[in-house]
Design a protein around this nucleic acid. Structure first.
Lengths: 338, 338
DNA sequence: GGTTGGCACTCGGGCATCGCGAGTGCCAGC
DNA sequence: GCTGGCACTCGCGATGCCCGAGTGCCAACC
């Protein structure tokens, strides 16, 4: 078990390294933090910390830098979440309040988060999985062609064309629309399949084919659109990483372009709790030298999607976590209002 | 006026430089292209080309590299547009054919273009300005709350909430929906305002307020959504730029994040014709060392939006132009079909 | 035992030096 | 107008050197 002071030394190392981006030595440490002991003592502590794998030297006779394990300990036990200043909070609220629709909310959130943390921001669109249906609309475009529009409680709208096997009259359209809505409005996506299962039977034989087709399309939309979309921003901040660019930045940009990777990344986080994945804790190789701070957000109690930032392992964890949490909270509010 | 051979020398320089990324000297030139003259002659030609500002030396006693002006001449007079191979064409078509909705089409197009050109791809969503209305839907969510859904011929769907000044019955909703559609379906957005101008008058006094509100929201949507959205991809390709990264890549990433800048960039291009803006021809400073190749695409004859790529001035212009043109063409087809 | 000052040692980064070679401009000759 | 020759330039990479920050260890001290 590490003594109190050694933890203190680790904390100091992390803080200094995050600030200066340079390996930190024993002398500099004692000068900047009054630990009450001499550099020699700190050196001994550092040797222990290195043995335990919390810090490492890039090369002999250089200062120490935290390892992933070191950051992990720092995040788990040494760092709190730094709350934002109240001007910052106000700025967030003002900025987000101006949004006109869902796209705008997400867009603004990304920009806000990127600016606040000076890192790459990732915001997932509210998932349809946990959403409920606000309305299903059915429009007749041609005798045998319908348009199906699905509106969710999070303000998302999806539409699909449906080619009917047989002409489908206006009254039938209205009928189906009404029955469909009476069954699914306010219900969860996951519940919809069983709720509409027996619907074709209640129609005339000639219309059953069309009704089935419409339902199939609806279910397909629910499934298909459950795969989530997301928006990223602040990639220019990647250039602040280090000076050994090409190698560092490349794989990160590549990873960021693969939505699947990002979705998995965010998805791994447990529900609404804040998750921090450090360096090699990220499954994806390209992100081995980055940390991901993510948290769920939602219009109610439940998280409907995640948002977070991707930055160098050498990041200001307390500040970043504070910003991420605050933004998630406000976005949740905005969504609940609309 | 430059002699035929000098133009040939310029072409050779551009081609070699694009291929090798290194300043090209007189000797190497004569070895790789059989110009039928000696290095000494080429040196004289190069001196002239340099005087005229088409090429430059990074430093004394190094080879020459093309200037923006040199690339311009190359693009205008020396280079054709390289058509894609037929396997490539087939691949494009297959890839795009799998798209399920507009978002998907745009997303696939971006990825395709980025992959094909190995550069940063930018695709603008089909503009609403030139679009026509396919359908307007009006749903009653609560006695005094409506949802307005607008569907365009390019498959885009926009929706807005409308809070009515007074309760609005179902029959009135149906009435308004029908009249609205009979007037605007198939018409251009720009024509809509006058087409619906006198609509409130034909309603009962008690409903006029609501009708006006709905119309106001509709017009607002038309205007608001005329400001275009776009999608970018392939930013990882920026890392192939040069080896002097941070300085080069940073401003480009920043510019790419500002949608306004990009929209202006694409917008500057004349209608559907292919435009190439080289280096300093780009108004935005961050893009001074990049070239933009853009072209309009559309579902019919007219361009409804632009797409293009952003890459280093040192790019394979014929190949890039070929890819951009081909992709634009196929996307146009896809949109026309749906 | 933990802490401290002292000391020899290590090693990377920065800087000046140097030689190589690609490339140039110019000139005289064809 | 083209060509071969030639002297010159200059950036780049390799080499060697020094400096200083930082370390590990040890003996002394509390």
């Amino acid at each position: 078990m590490l003594s109190e002071r050694r933890l203190e030394v680790l904390r100091a190392i992390v803080q200094d390294y995050v600030g200066t981006e340079e390996p930190v030595g024993s002398k500099a440490l004692t000068e900047r933090h009054n630990l009450g002991v001499s550099p020699a003592t700190v050196r001994n502590d550092m040797a222990v910390l290195e043995d335990e794998g919390f810090i490492a030297q890039p090369h002999t006779s250089a200062g120490r830098i935290p390892t992933d394990k070191g950051y992990r300990l720092f995040v788990d036990r040494l760092a709190g979440v730094k709350p934002l200043s109240s001007p910052e909070r106000r700025a967030i609220q003002n900025f987000l309040d101006g949004a006109v629709d869902l796209d705008d909310v997400v867009g603004r959130t990304v920009r806000l988060l990127a600016q606040l943390t000076r890192q790459v921001a990732v915001v997932q669109y509210p998932s349809l999985t946990r959403s409920t249906v606000r309305h299903v609309e059915l429009l007749s475009l041609a005798p045998a062609r319908l348009m199906l529009v699905l509106i969710t409680d999070t303000g998302r709208v999806e539409q699909r064309m449906v080619d009917c096997p047989a002409p489908f009259g206006e009254t039938s359209v209205a009928d189906l629309r009404a029955r469909l809505n009476s069954r699914v409005v306010g219900r969860r996506f996951t519940d919809v399949p069983q709720l509409v299962q027996d619907l074709p039977e209640s129609f005339e034989a000639e219309d059953r084919g069309t009704v089935s087709t419409v339902l199939a399309t609806l279910l397909e939309t629910l499934v298909e659109e459950t795969e989530e979309r997301l928006m990223i921003g602040g990639t220019a901040n990647l250039t602040r990483f280090g000076h050994d660019f090409p190698l560092t930045i490349r794989p990160v940009l590549e990873a960021l372009e693969e939505q699947v990777v990002l979705l998995k990344l965010l998805g791994e986080a447990k529900d609404s709790a804040m998750t921090v994945r450090i360096g090699h804790e990220n499954a994806h190789e390209g992100l081995n030298s980055t940390s991901v701070v993510a948290v769920g957000y939602g219009s109610g109690d439940e998280a409907v999607a995640k948002l977070g930032v991707v930055g160098p392992t050498r990041m200001d964890y307390p500040g970043t976590m504070g910003a991420v949490r605050a933004v998630a909270r406000y976005v949740g509010q905005i969504l609940a209002e609309s």
